[in-house]
Amino acid sequence: MLRIDCPFCGPRNHDEFTYLEDGSVKMPALANSNKNAWYEAVFLRENPRGAHIEDWHHTQGCRMVLRVKRDTLTHKITSVVPAHPEYKKMLASRDKPVRPSGKKSAGARAK
C-alpha cells in the first residue's frame, strides 16, 4: 500500500486515488492538427526504471489531480503537488500549515 501525501487531504492510502497517466507528457494544443504529435502524446510512453512523474486523481478525496514523483523501483514518493500550476503556486505561497504533531509543514514534507 502506497501512502500519497495529498496537499489538500494529508497522507492517504493509494486506493483512494486513481492513476491517470505519465505526468511528464504534454498534450498538444487542441488546435494542433498534427496527427503525429497527437499519436505520440496519446500512445507513446516511457517505461522508466527509477524516477517517474505521474498524475494521480484523488478520486475518493478532494478530486484534485496531483503530480507525484515516484521511484518505480522502490515506490518511494518524493513529491506530491497539484497538477494545476495556479493551485501549486497558491499552496507554495501560503503560510506553511503546522501539523497537529508539530512536525514538518506540507511544503517541507516532500523530502
Partner: peptide
C-alpha cells in the same frame, strides 16, 4: 472533465 480542467 476534472483531468482536462486541472492538467490541460
Amino acid at each position: 472533465l476534472e483531468e482536462l480542467l486541472q492538467r490541460r
